[in-house]
Design a binder for these strands. Structure first.
Length: 254
DNA sequence: AACGGAACCTGAAAGC
DNA sequence: TGCTTTCAGGTTCCGT
């Protein structure tokens, strides 16, 4: 269930595994013979420009992962695609099948990609611009952060974590945040992304919802445990059908 | 135009 | 034990 940090770590792994390499074989015939010019990321999308000018777009959905295996290894459980380069082979596995792979022969991105707002790592985040954008909605700040056209890459975990770091109540209306709040929020987003990049970096990513996976987060998935900052009990609520975790004491209310 | 809710799909855990 | 319900860090579509 990947968000910006997990997709960024996947990007770095894929760049090492297949960046600059020629595709010797693939589950998608059209890819054979192409060279992977680079592995890029924007929001939760991976973008792989190929030597012919075609571009491969990959979205991990909720459960998608790229794994490195040996060329001689058989299909992995839930394998949906494979790309072989030299002796190595990368596999896309996705039990829940929400992930997507799109080969754009003309390089034109899918609509969802084209509509993405600024990516914090790729484009940076401007507090004034974000503040102006937040003025245009009556939704809660938590729901608004999940809107990929406002900001690319923040998902349910990063939203909760960033708001906790910024001490902002997730139920607060987005248009009620002043510039000072938005500055704290921007700092919170960067801090949370950095923290997650540091704690999850591995050749094989493990998502927190998987059985037995560690939970490195401050509030996500921590209902009824003490807030790491003020020791009040973390609460779980539902917003727009998704779980939100927050501290009712140190995150300033609506 | 913007918003909330259901739908898409599968597996694991919790509840009965 | 086995059946049912709930939940999951994704987007998309549909109706209001």
């Amino acid at each position: 269930m990947p968000e910006l940090p997990e997709v960024e770590l996947t990007r770095r792994n894929l760049a090492r595994w297949i960046g600059g390499k020629k595709i010797a074989d693939a589950s998608l015939d059209r890819l054979v013979g192409e060279r992977v010019r680079s592995v890029e990321r924007r929001g939760k999308w991976l973008r792989l420009p190929l030597s012919s000018g075609a571009v491969l777009f990959s979205h991990l959905g909720m459960t998608g992962k790229w794994l490195e295996r040996s060329r001689s290894d058989g299909p992995q459980r839930w394998e949906r695609a494979r790309i072989d380069v030299g002796r190595a082979s990368v596999r896309f596995v996705d039990p829940r099948r929400f992930g997507r792979m799109i080969l754009a022969r003309d390089g034109k991105p899918p609509a969802a990609f084209a509509a993405l707002g600024p990516d914090p790592l790729v484009d940076g985040l401007d507090a004034r611009a974000l503040h102006a954008r937040l003025q245009r909605t009556k939704r809660s700040i938590k729901e608004t952060l999940l809107d990929q056209t406002v900001l690319a890459g923040v998902g349910n975990i990063q939203a909760a974590e960033a708001l906790w770091r910024a001490r902002i109540d997730p139920r607060r209306r987005a248009d009620r945040l002043d510039l000072a709040h938005v500055r704290k929020l921007v700092a919170g987003i960067f801090a949370s992304i950095r923290f997650t990049l540091g704690s999850e970096d591995a050749p094989e990513l493990v998502y927190v919802e998987e059985p037995g996976a560690p939970n490195p987060f401050k509030v996500y998935g921590k209902a009824e445990t003490p807030c790491p900052r003020c020791r009040a009990n973390i609460r779980r609520i539902v917003q727009a059908g998704r779980s939100t975790f927050f501290c009712p004491r140190c995150q300033i209310g609506p």
